[in-house]
Computed example of a mutant assay.
Amino acid sequence: MIKNSITNLICCLFFLSTASIFAQTEIAEKRVTDLTNLEISKGISLHIISPEPIQFVDLSTNNLTGDLPAENIARIKITDILESDSAATKKNIDLNNLGVITIVCQSFMAQYKINYLDFERKAVTNIQIQPEDMQPLEYPKLAFSSTELQKFSLDILRKKLVGKPIREVINLKLTMQINNVYVVNDYIFLDMTFLNSTNLGYDIDAIKFSVEDKKIYKATNNQSITLEPIYQLYRQKEFKKNYRNIYVFKKFTYPNSKVMKIRLLEEQLSGRAIEMKVKYSDILNADTF
């Protein structure tokens, strides 16, 4: 009897705690009547601009068509089915409800109800997705969006460089520096500067990151693991004298027998290259901000 009571109590506590979690993470449901209304006219494209890259767009009816001309812009138009109000009436199309647009981004979703506007001169050609229209897709947040990674990177860039860089390599009158390493949750931010002390501009072919063995006894035994940044602040392809950038990686580890290698490669025919080795201790001593 006592055993059953304890079991029931544990089950009760489990369901209460589970209910509490769902109560915190639940996204309030929205009905069509709750959605923000957008108006669109024949022959006019409506551009919906998102602060984040758009993952996909859903158009609920055949009255609407669209595409993604840029990673953060959805372009929506009325299909040819609506040649005139009378044609719409014959086809039983409700001009006050042409459909619902759902825009899914990295950390939120936005939905709009589309109405028909008969006055082309009053048609709006572009809108920005507003915070009140954003429905978060995850809670608590498990990953940073590109917008958040950009904000962190800009915060790092605004920091004044103090003291010597963590790592520095000089070759062919080129300098590669790691100014600092930062960690935010499971993200590693590398603050790097490249300097060119020649009068010949540098055309960047690639900046490559990898984890490799410290000592190579045989060429066939060398294991190289490529590391791809999930985000970088700038995508500059050339620089004259100096170039500073922030590279972001998801958390990674490697043993003391390996090092992280960073290579700056120039486009042919000049082909100037510079390479740096980074110890794991440099990553472990990363700052937070």
Rank of each mutant, 00 (worst) to 15 (best):
I2F: 07
K3S: 11
K3Q: 13
S5E: 15
I6K: 12
L9C: 09
S17T: 15
S20Y: 15
A23M: 05
A23W: 13
Q24E: 15
E29C: 04
T33S: 15
D34E: 04
L35F: 04
E39I: 00
G43V: 01
I44G: 01
S45H: 10
S45Y: 08
S45R: 13
L68R: 11
N72P: 09
A74S: 14
L82H: 04
N97Q: 08
G99E: 08
G99C: 08
I101A: 05
V104G: 01
Q106R: 08
S107L: 03
I114R: 02
K122Q: 14
I129C: 07
Q135S: 12
Q150L: 13
K151L: 12
F152Y: 15
L154P: 00
P165N: 03
R167F: 05
V169W: 01
N171M: 08
T175P: 06
I178C: 12
N179G: 11
N180C: 01
I188Y: 13
D191R: 08
T193R: 13
N196H: 04
N196I: 08
N196G: 05
T198G: 05
K208Y: 06
F209E: 08
S210L: 06
V211L: 12
S224E: 14
S224C: 07
I225S: 15
T226Q: 13
E228Y: 07
P229I: 00
P229C: 03
Y231S: 02
Y234E: 14
Y247R: 10
K250V: 01
K250I: 01
F252N: 12
K258P: 00
V259I: 14
V259R: 13
R263V: 04
L265Q: 09
L265H: 04
E266R: 05
E266H: 06
R272A: 05
A273F: 07
E275C: 02
E275W: 03
K277G: 03
